[in-house]
Structure formats: C-alpha cells, structure tokens
Design a binder for these strands. Structure first.
Length: 270
DNA sequence: ATGGCTTACAAAGTAAGA
C-alpha cells in the first residue's frame, strides 16, 4: 500500500495554515511532519488538520520557538517524544503505524528539529553551537540504539547540509554554521550508527545540487539560488528498498508569505 | 561572496532563525 509522507519546516504553523491547506490539497500527502510549529500544544490548530483530512495529530510544542508535529490520515499505534540535552526543548516526536494498518509491517516515523547552532562555529565561545554538536552526539546514540531495525524513517530539519552539492558554494560554506566539517562529520556519524540511508540522494545523484532552504534575505532567491539542503529523509535499510521517489517542492518557496524551507515528499510502497 | 528578512512576544525592541 502506498504511503505519501511530507516533511516541512513551516516556521509557525498558525501563521501558515493556509499554505498547509494549499499544499495538502495539491499534493495529497497521507502524513505531514512539520518543524518549527512555534506554539503550545493547546494552541495547535488540530481542528484545521481534521477538516483537511488529518484527524490524527501527534504534537510536541512549546511557546514561541521550535515545536514538531505529525499529522496523519491513518491512526497511530504509539506516540513517543524524546528529549535531548536536557533542555526541555520540543525537538522530536515519533509515531508508529501499527502492523495491519496498511496490511504490512509496522512503520515508525521520527520527526526531528536539530538546533540551528547560532553564528560562530566555535563550541567554546558559542553555547548554541555547543548545543548543536551535543545534540548530534546524543542523536547518534539514540538513533543507533536498534532504532534502524525494521521499517523506520527519520525526517526533519537537521540544520546540516552534509555534502558539497548540498550548499551553493562548498568552499565558502566550510566556515559557515550548517556546513562546517565538524557538523557534517557528526551528521554522517549519526547516519552510520543506524545505518540510515540518505533517501533523497538515492534519487538525486551527489553531483547534482539539491536544496530545501533559501534565506529570507535574498529577494531574488530563485535566481541567486544560494540554497542549502537542511531538510532530510533517512530510511532504515529495510524501508529504503520500499521508497519509490522523492520530491522537493521548490515552488513552495515562491508562495505567498512562504516559509524559508520547502516541503519534501516521500513516496513509500510499504 | 551573509545578512539586506521574518517570526513570536505579558511587543515597540529583543531574541532567534541559519
């Protein structure tokens, strides 16, 4: 049974609910994973999701910043939230679709929002960068601890562009947070502990540029094209063989009052 | 050749994103 899953850093779910509606209507995903929802659980627009055909919503939110959710047409068998770095931040939520729901094996979806890391790529002088590196270390332990067995998928805004063609200028970006060697090595380390398969790069070769984020600061974002691939889809080895395709919905960056990230769609023939 | 923008908030300036 095919499952269409989307991941999108929405940069305020309440503000951009009209865009979520447009996206859902046009692309018809079965599961929508959002990051940076920026609201408490009680403020989450669950009724709107229900109206759009997503009656099942797993939320991990907080006031003003961060926050993740998974909205779904199918019911969940389990919901889990993991805290990292003892910060009390809402940066992870996972759901499991039960065996038999799709007539298949259970599938677990992890939705992450990794810390951005601030400006200075130095853990001694920048606490935010230290937090990001520590988060990636904890993530490696936790995601490597048997969680890549069976059918599992990791999506989200991981705030690291690991490959040369995940940024608009590799050499320049080596000094910029999101593409520094320590970050890209740690992110690759997280993948190896699974092992987790970079599903997006199964469909777009490493020689080709692939971006999911463009800064708000360039009015001519499309022509300048100074993007980064900060949003990711990783699959367990078992599930990787069931992924039929990936689509980066670049047009969403040009929508009215857009997020600076665009949605990534995953087609799974589960 | 990177911040020139955008968001939330017990708001009118600050913190955060990346």
């Amino acid at each position: 049974m095919p499952i269409k899953l989307a991941t999108w850093n929405i940069n305020s779910v309440r503000l951009r609910m009209p865009l979520v509606e447009h996206f859902a209507t046009r692309f018809q995903p079965d599961v929508i994973c959002l990051q940076e929802t920026k609201c408490r659980d009680g403020e989450f627009p669950s009724a709107d999701f229900k109206r759009l055909g997503y009656p099942h919503v797993a939320i991990n939110g907080q006031k003003g910043y961060h926050g993740v959710c998974i909205a779904s047409r199918m019911p969940f068998d389990a919901i889990d939230k993991q805290e990292f770095c003892e910060k009390g931040d809402a940066r992870h939520i996972a759901v499991t679709f039960a065996a038999g729901v799709a007539g298949r094996d259970p599938i677990t979806v992890h939705n992450f929002y990794v810390p951005a890391g601030g400006d200075e790529p130095d853990r001694e002088t920048n606490d935010k960068f230290a937090h990001k590196l520590d988060f990636l270390d904890e993530m490696a332990h936790w995601l490597g601890d048997g969680r890549a067995g069976g059918h599992a998928i990791v999506v989200g805004d991981l705030n690291v562009a690991p490959l040369e063609n995940d940024v608009w200028n590799h050499k320049y970006m080596l000094k910029i947070v999101s593409h520094t060697p320590i970050e890209t090595e740690k992110l690759k380390g997280v993948m190896e502990t699974g092992p987790w398969v970079d599903a997006m790069r199964r469909f777009v070769p490493e020689q080709e540029r692939l971006f999911t984020w463009w800064s708000y600061r360039s009015p001519d974002w499309a022509t300048a094209d100074k993007g980064r691939r900060l949003d990711h889809v990783w699959a367990s080895e078992q599930l990787a063989n069931s992924i039929r395709g990936i689509e980066v919905v670049k047009e969403a960056r040009g929508w009215e009052r857009p997020s600076d990230h665009v949605p990534v769609l995953v087609d799974i023939d589960h």
